[in-house]
Design a binder for these strands. Structure first.
Lengths: 339, 339
DNA sequence: ATTGGCACTCGAGGCAACGGAGTGCCAGGA
DNA sequence: TCCTGGCACTCCGTTGCCTCGAGTGCCAAT
């Protein structure tokens, strides 16, 4: 009963503060929410909540604002995932179903997510390592330089320039292409090392050096340090939160421009089935310490193809963001999984 | 003599204001620059300059700031292109020479440009229409859906999914591939329509429907509305200019996120050999009316492969920006032209 | 445990005074 | 004819002061 109401008060504080961005006081709280008690009682509860570290006051005689710990409790125990409105569901569907290729899917979804949440949105391209090879192509640029092109089942096209040890003619290129396709087509990239392990030994002697070079390059580029990519949208929304960031805005923007940073971020939170929320100091990267991140993985089956999420001020509509992230992840997963 | 000094005064005002972002007064001017005259004389000149619309005062009894017209005169007649420092030249070279493929070149150069100018940088990917076909690949996804992949001489890889009227087997795909490659390899994309015009008539009857479909898709996708792309970097630098923008920051950020807007922008100013400067109201798009754009084209030979430039506050170091833009364009042009 | 009352704190906003930077104008000098 | 020093005026930004109001903490009463 007592405990119960204290949590109600915390919830009310979070909800009001997210809306107004102003410290919320006891009187306003008691009025705006049906707590059934007087402001004085609310004050006692607030006092207790502050004692426990869930809320704080910017200065004496101001209202209270939630701490990171307060938001955490709110997210964990006090809020459901707000269901999306019908209009929002429709928007998602109509926005994504027109997509024609992978690039288009990713770009549309990242913009959609930014629009739905009014935050900065991040969508990772499907990881190569989770994809399968659909086709491999080798094109001659000069006799000693080949362009290696790989098309995956998610529609990604990866390319690398390869310098071969000795000049090759079109005949050899054709053979190389055949060997590689035979070995890799339909294979998942994580299985690639195994699939090509003794390829060279089994091949015609004159192909071996080229094959070795190609395999080495391919392994290095696509498995050891695969090129992961992300799309970003909605940085304009940061101006809405300019007050929340102040000094930290510039480092934040710089971080968001770094693919590396975003990949690390997404990499940490791309569980399927779970929407991860990182609040303020919970983030591992300095530049994000003043933000909250709501993210999840997308894909079909056991392992995530990629991740997506939003970055915004700690003062965020968590239920709404979580719902949007989850919904978009589901659609994107279906689209890319089924393709 | 008289005219001469007035222009010196304008130049001094622009230079000081760009540095300080504060209205500059007669006394400070006479001190900081070797004008050889007293503040009172400077005042007379300023008065005249204001009369002619080159400078203005934010309010009575404040210093003067340049108007768009003032900046224009400064750019046209009062400033050379500031030569880059040795360190900057070295930075450009070492930054760009490590690039491995097209994506890498573009991404590196856009970041470089943002860093050099401390503004927002934009780099357009080489236009398809100016490129030549290096290789065409056709991959079966399902019997009725083909993936068309085209590799250009600038290293761009374009792909489209094509629905064919009737199922095709690998044999036919091979033939289609052969026919298209024979017709298009080495051709510039602008010449493509001509090259494929009577391809279908000359082909084996059973190939015609497929060929027609493919050709239609290819023409539409790659010639009629080719997918142009741009890269963006340095939006964090806008926080440096936050004061210059105020209300207009959000629309500006939104515009910068729109590929369409950036493409229009670059398209208007991608002359080779000329660094175009658009100051404030000179810009054709509303969101850019409070900014200045410094841009040029890059490429080899007669027509530009693409464009690049920077967007920043009107209070910009024009000589520096022009030098950086020109230098980066030169390097990028060499890199992509020679590839 | 809850409530109303009360004294206290502190920031926001309004207002007046002040100082300083800058201007325009004018009369005198090269 | 052009430049210069002097002078009065304007207006912005800052500072200090005051008041107002929202909010708190505590206490006695229910």
């Amino acid at each position: 009963m007592l405990e119960e109401r204290r949590l109600d008060v915390l919830r009310a504080i979070v909800e009001d503060f997210v809306l107004s961005n102003e410290p919320v006081g006891s009187k306003a709280l008691a009025e705006r929410h049906q707590l059934g008690v007087s402001p004085a009682t609310v004050r006692n509860d607030m006092s207790a909540l502050e004692e426990e570290g869930y809320i704080t006051q910017p200065h004496t005689s101001a209202g209270r604002i939630p701490t990171d710990k307060g938001y955490r409790l709110f997210v964990d125990r006090l809020s459901g995932v707000k269901p999306l409105s019908r209009a929002e569901r429709r928007a998602i569907q109509s926005f994504l179903e027109g997509a024609i290729d992978l690039d288009d899917v990713v770009r549309r979804s990242v913009r959609l997510l930014a629009q739905l949440t009014r935050q900065v949105a991040v969508v990772q391209y499907p990881s190569l390592s989770c994809s399968s090879v659909r086709h491999i192509e080798i094109v001659t640029i000069t006799p000693a330089r080949l362009l290696f092109v790989m098309i995956t089942d998610t529609g990604r096209v990866e390319q690398r320039v390869v310098e071969v040890p000795a000049p090759v003619d079109d005949l050899i290129v054709g053979e190389l292409r055949g060997v590689l396709n035979a070995a890799l087509n339909g294979r998942r990239l994580v299985d690639a090392p195994e699939a090509v392990a003794d390829l060279s030994d089994a091949a015609r002697p004159d192909l071996r050096p080229h094959l070795n070079t190609l395999i080495a390059v391919v392994m290095e580029a696509l498995v050891d340090k695969p090129e992961e990519r992300v799309a970003l949208a909605g940085t304009a929304n940061l101006t809405l939160s300019a007050l929340d960031f102040a000094d930290t805005l510039r480092p934040l923007l710089e971080a968001l421009e770094e693919q590396v940073v975003l990949l690390k971020l997404i990499g940490e939170v791309r569980d399927l089935d779970t929407v991860t929320v990182r609040i303020g100091q919970e983030n591992s990267m300095d530049a994000l310490r003043s933000t909250s991140v709501v993210a999840t993985g997308y894909g079909r089956g056991a392992s995530a193809l990629g991740g997506l999420g939003v970055v915004g001020p700690r003062r965020m509509d968590y239920p709404g963001a979580m719902a949007a992230v989850r919904a978009v992840a589901k659609y994107v997963g279906d689209l890319l999984g089924a393709d």
